[in-house]
Design a protein around this nucleic acid. Structure first.
Length: 254
DNA sequence: AATCATGTCAACCGCAGTGCG
DNA sequence: CCGCACTGCGGTTGACATGAT
């Protein structure tokens, strides 16, 4: 597989790596270690750019990399961590044993994302798309009987989806993707009006725009320890509607 | 058997973050 | 403070593999 080989304007080789190049890179790094990727290709006798060497090493040649099919357990973990971290593949990879971020990203985009969508789960927010549906995902494609069931919003919240729920969903998505400013999320959660049952749709829209229009850079960051605790907390069931657990977690951080 | 659709995976590109002079 | 070089990350692409029709 891979791309055909060609040379760019600088005479750098691009595309598929051959075994001889792999051997040169492995030999050099084993002897000298990883330092200054820019100079490595020249010193290793490779007609490649440093970036290409780095990528080849980290995603393919590095010792201990786990390759091949993902197990149902791995897939479940990816979905779970993705629900917390969003598309932060490098961070997700830290929670997987010897899987590269590229590998996880590929598997998500080619398989898991579609599977969730097929089963009525929004792959970005991890919430059920259809309000009246009990959602079940199975690992049929991977030859496993592992099954996960999400309750519907109806099952979880007694009320029909309101503006409040929409806001909460947006917040959850924002938290998971680190898209929104921490202070704005905090203000909204602490706003007494958020608890009002008579949520004015205009207010909701206004608040929505407030969130969407945020351009601050001080994002909420889930560090490794936070995610680990989230994953290990017994009182947060996986079956819990994702946006509820995310909000629960976010209030703990506050 | 041929064709088309979908899946897989390696590799590229561009951008953002960081460190240094 | 600014600009440059380097690194790391995420999104995307392209080619091959596989399955369905």
């Amino acid at each position: 597989m891979g791309r055909k080989t060609w040379f760019n304007d600088d005479g750098m080789k691009k595309g598929e790596w051959i075994a001889e190049e792999d051997e040169k890179l492995i030999a050099y790094i084993n002897e000298h270690g990883m330092c200054d990727w820019r100079s490595i290709p020249k010193r290793a006798g490779l007609q490649r750019c440093g970036k290409s060497c780095r990528l080849r090493w980290l995603n393919y040649l590095r010792p201990g990399i786990k390759r091949g099919k993902f197990t149902p357990q791995e897939e479940e973990k990816i979905i779970k961590v993705h629900g917390v971290l969003g598309n932060r593949w490098a961070a997700i990879a830290k929670h997987m044993e010897n899987r590269t971020d590229n590998d996880i990203k590929n598997h998500w985009n080619s398989c898991l994302k579609k599977r969730l969508s097929r089963n009525g789960i929004d792959p970005m927010t991890h919430e059920p798309v259809n309000n009246n549906l009990t959602v079940t995902t199975t690992y049929v494609e991977c030859g496993s009987s592992s099954t996960t069931t999400w309750p519907t919003r109806e099952n979880h919240c007694s009320s029909t989806p309101s503006g409040l729920v929409c806001v909460l969903n947006k917040l959850a998505a924002g938290i998971s993707s680190r898209q929104y400013d921490l202070n704005i999320i905090k203000n909204i959660l602490l706003d007494p009006r958020i608890t009002s049952s008579e949520q004015d749709e205009e207010e909701v829209l206004k608040r929505d725009q407030e969130i969407g229009g945020c351009e601050e850079e001080d994002f909420l960051i889930w560090d490794d320890e936070e995610v680990r605790r989230y994953m290990e907390t017994d009182d947060i069931e996986y079956e819990t509607t994702p946006y509820v657990s995310l909000l629960y977690e976010s209030t703990r951080i506050f």
